[in-house]
Structures are given as C-alpha cells and as structure tokens.
Design a protein around this nucleic acid. Sequence first.
DNA 1: ACGGTATTTCTAGAAAAATAGAAATATAGA
DNA 2: TCTATATTTCTATTTTTCTAGAAATACCGT
Lengths: 106, 106
Amino acid sequence: MKLDDAAARLEALGNPTRLKIYRALVRAGAEGLPVGRLQAKLDAAASTLSHHLKSLVVVGLVTQTREGTTLVCHANYDIMRDLLGYMVEECCAEGSCAPVVLPKVA
Amino acid sequence: MKLDDAAARLEALGNPTRLKIYRALVRAGAEGLPVGRLQAKLDAAASTLSHHLKSLVVVGLVTQTREGTTLVCHANYDIMRDLLGYMVEECCAEGSCAPVVLPKVA
DNA sequence: ACGGTATTTCTAGAAAAATAGAAATATAGA
DNA sequence: TCTATATTTCTATTTTTCTAGAAATACCGT
C-alpha cells in the first residue's frame, strides 16, 4: 500500500461517525448491514450517512451489495488488514507496537 | 481507548504530510528528529509544518523535547500501539485482520 | 404503468482544515 | 544586552468537509 492510500484510508476512519459505521459493520459480520439499519443505529440524516458511506466505499474499506431495494454494506477486511499491516511496517519500531499481536481472542 | 480518541488519532494520521512526518519520526528511532530536519525533509513551510506537528502532539502521537534552541520530535509508540490495538479489537473480525501479527521482522 | 420504500444526488450554508507570510518568542553565545 | 538560529503564533486566504433538506433515482410488487 502506498502512503497516500494509507493516509486516505486513515482519514476515512478518522471521523467519529465513520468509525462508528465501520465498527458496526464489523460487528454485523458476514451478513453486513443495510444502509437503513445503519441510519437508525447512528441516528443521522439519510443524506449525511450516504455521504459518509461513500467516503468509506471510495477508499475500499466498505463494499455494498444490492438486495432488492436495500443496499447492504460490508466491512472489507482485506483492506483493513493491509492498512494495519502498513501501519505496523511503516509506523512502528520493531517490538514497540508488537502487542498488536494480541488478536488471538478466539 | 475511546472511539472519539481513536478517531482523532486516525484523523491526525490521515493526511499525507502528517503520515510522512510520523513515519520519518519512527525511522529516526529513539533519538528523534529536530523540527528543522523534518522541514528540510518534507519541504514544507515552517509554519505549515508546525501546524501539522501540533495536530500530532495534541493527540499524543508525537512528543517533543527541547534541546537548546532546537525542538526534537519523537514518535510515541505507546499511543500507536494502543491505537492499533483498538483497531484490531473494535474493527476486525477475529482472524480477518490477524496477519497484522507479522511485525516479527527483526 | 403506478405506488411505495430505500437510497442517492443536488444544493447550499456553516464549520473546519490547509497553506504560508510576517511577526513574535525562546534559547544560546559573544 | 545584542545577534543569530529555531520554532511558534498570528493573520489571512483558499479549499475542503460536514450537515441536512429537497428532489431524483432504483427497485419491487401490484
């Protein structure tokens, strides 16, 4: 991942509303969440939410699949993994950020 | 770490100039880098750089120590580790982002 | 084709960020 | 104290982001 891409993705996540969106999508798991559900959950205007979602989609962190009249959103783990990988590689001294190695929760 | 803090830190890193600053500080290691060196390296106006540095200092990602007339900047690994930890915990499905476990470079 | 639900795009205003020149501050040394 | 160097703060301008209402579009069922 190039620095500019990483910065764009970090910026996309660097807004409370968008970070909440992303977190909600991760928690929703593989089935994802319809835009409408997100809207209810976050209590934002539809147009505002759509705007934020677009930011996340543009940088690849979120994907959308249409199911009839509803748009279902999914967290894109591949991009997130690459982003975290970038941060660990480029922005950590060896060992200093290693504790990230703790995702062995399950 | 609270969501708002994580978002603020991600936003701080979510700008190409600031991400370059942070990366340069990581690469500089324990001795850090004076503001002037950063300025030369990034080729930005002094006031602009100072402004960006402040953003990073405010969210705790960078610390500064004065050495005579020069201000030396350091990456704060603790905050970065916590931030990465937050992202792995809150924004990853178990396993999906695990490959972050690769920092065993050295 | 029509009606309804879901979502986006358009539009616009307010707030915040980025940029950088000029002036101010801090520190060290003569 | 005066000078020089390093850096920040002040100020202003331009650009971008955030917000959300209103209108438009997409899709489905009848």
